[in-house]
Design a protein around this nucleic acid. Structure first.
Lengths: 345, 345
DNA sequence: GGCCCGATGAGTAACGTTGCCCATCGGGTC
DNA sequence: GACCCGATGGGCAACGTTACTCATCGGGCC
């Protein structure tokens, strides 16, 4: 069967003709602009409904706004990010803005491609979640469109930021483990060399927070950090390295839940019981951390709240582009579960 | 600090002026259209590079294409969908099309909102993954823009489809369990009443496939289906119902991995060992099914291949809108893991 | 009664790009 | 030498919307 002929879109002109007014009048009603009487509004709205009119975002964009907000998520698979997204869409739910997402992207090149695509499509604002791009690129993007950056520490004069306190999160984990009686607490971090990122990226701050907390609790001499990366594989390798130590740690603080999964696998292979022989904690409180068979102690970042704040900041900036930038810092909470317990005697 | 003044976008006119040619010429080069000499092309391309020109998608859309493809995913949290997305972006990687996603949406109203937003933004084509909207709505969308529907059985004259053989998948699971010696194999399905969806939705086909396979293996008398829904909670309730049977099944085939997670939880609460006392299988082969501590037997749908096929069909339709619609049916494979084994003596 | 003013509505030129159409030019054919 | 033809380049009117400017009208004020 052959597809039926595509019918032309209903435009503002059709509405104007149908309501017997000018296109200007229709536009005014559409934008709730000044200069239209109540009767006019009613008449135009009725015409819109009758014709099933919907404005064409592309055409609007040519003259001003597209009423579209672009969200860039680094990794759609990490269950933490959907929480952020939900927070964003919830906060934007009763505005006239529509959210569109970039496809999952990892690496600077991909990120640049996605942000450019969004700019080219006339997005009114951008929310960049946990970007890895260098700061210069972020500022360049932000200087051409209102932007909120989520999950990068440090402030910028051109973009607003929302971030969770990773130092505090790490401290919660270390405190929890120390409170259970652990002293040999090791940490698996994501390897980072770039000096800016060393300051701005959450993973680096978690490692910092771990060191600070250990020292604050008088456990400075037990500080033990393995540098791999935030993947299951990285956790597996990190755990193997730790198990080869002369004095094996009694607790492992993995910098991310997915890392903890690799750790659990290595422990199971090595015949070690968790938490009987060794305790394991993650970070992010991802969906699978809560799953019964896993039940991983983790740190919750309140992704929903983060997303909500990001959306709110963006809306504020959209309405006043001159306002000074804001930095929102949220506090994490600990979710103790069954992978942490007292150390073996 | 106050943000620096936003500088104007580089347009085709700037490029034309810089290259000392007409805007028409620039447009021709941009589109690889006929009527531009090699020297002209070179000159214009150089000007584009020097000015850092990028075409404005909205303006292009007003005259034709936006080079944007919209993808609608029902639930970003279900780790099966990112696989599909990867397949799509991979297949579209070296085309001039850019993918944008709708925010996760559940329910007909949300889906309608997202598809409308995409149409209003002049998307050139749509890929709708596992939509729940009634067929009439899908056909209406498809009749105004080239569309591929993923994960809905049945064919339409206006949209192409890509779907995995859910009947075969169910049969793989039942065959696997029967091969291990199980006879009392129960199934937890997603409750469905709408008659169209009963035919088109994958969940309904899995339940059908289960029944067919049981009968084919001479186990018709053991057919036992619990109707809840595809959530962890649904799996939990379904399992409790099954455990209350006079003769408890020795194996449970959950219609989705997330359902299986609920089942595992219920088993663990009831003090039953998996797979010692009871075997459990899921569907979708989601990321967490492979995680060490879970190791769930599941059915892999080759999401990557599904996405790739969807993208390819869409490209074909974009280049020939009159061609008859295609239906692609892919085959699932079984991933046996540690939650299934022989039944207890 | 003339004047100004606010309220209401319409006209119109952009915004950046495309695709049709026309102008020009050099060279080959009869 | 007149004619035609293909190759190359430019002009221009859309596409759907917005935001300016301008016209009109009725009423209140001196």
């Amino acid at each position: 069967m052959e597809p039926p002929a595509r019918r032309r879109r209903v435009t503002i002109i059709d509405v104007a003709r149908h309501a017997q007014v000018s296109t200007t009048a229709v536009s005014k009603v559409l934008r709730n602009a000044y200069g239209a009487s109540p009767q006019m509004r009613a008449k135009v709205r009725r015409a819109m409904d009758e014709l099933g009119y919907r404005p064409h975002a592309g055409a609007r964009g040519l003259r001003g706004q597209t009423y579209t907000i672009g969200v860039m998520l680094p990794d759609i698979r990490n269950p933490f990010f959907p929480d952020v997204l939900d927070g964003i869409t919830a906060a934007l739910g009763d505005t006239e803005y529509q959210v569109l997402l970039g496809p999952g992207c990892n690496g600077e090149k991909e990120e640049a491609r996605v942000t450019e695509a969004m700019l080219d499509r006339g997005m009114d604002g951008l929310i960049l979640v946990a970007p890895v791009s260098p700061r210069a690129h972020l500022e360049q993007v932000a200087s051409s469109v209102p932007t909120v950056v989520v999950g990068r520490h440090g402030s910028s004069p051109v973009y607003d930021t929302v971030v969770d306190d990773d130092v505090e999160g790490a401290s919660l984990v270390v405190g929890h483990l120390a409170g259970l009686g652990h002293r040999r607490i090791a940490h698996i971090e994501h390897h980072e060399t770039d000096p800016t990122r060393l300051v701005e990226m959450p993973n680096a701050r978690r490692a910092d927070g771990y060191r600070q907390a250990m020292r604050a609790l008088g456990l400075g001499e037990w500080i033990d950090v393995v540098s791999t990366n935030y993947t299951q594989e990285g956790g597996y390798r990190g755990a193997q390295e730790l198990l080869a130590r002369p004095r094996v740690p009694t607790a492992v603080f993995a910098g991310a839940d997915i890392v903890a999964m690799g750790v659990l696998e290595a422990m199971s292979e090595a015949g070690l019981a968790v938490p009987g022989d060794i305790s394991v904690a993650g970070y992010d409180n991802t969906t699978f951390a809560a799953l019964g068979p896993i039940s991983l102690t983790s740190v919750d970042q309140a992704g929903h709240k983060i997303g909500g704040n990001a959306a709110r900041l963006l809306l504020k900036r959209l309405s006043d582009r001159q306002k000074p930038t804001d930095q929102v810092l949220l506090s994490p909470t600990l979710m103790p579960r069954r992978t942490t317990n007292r150390p073996p005697e």
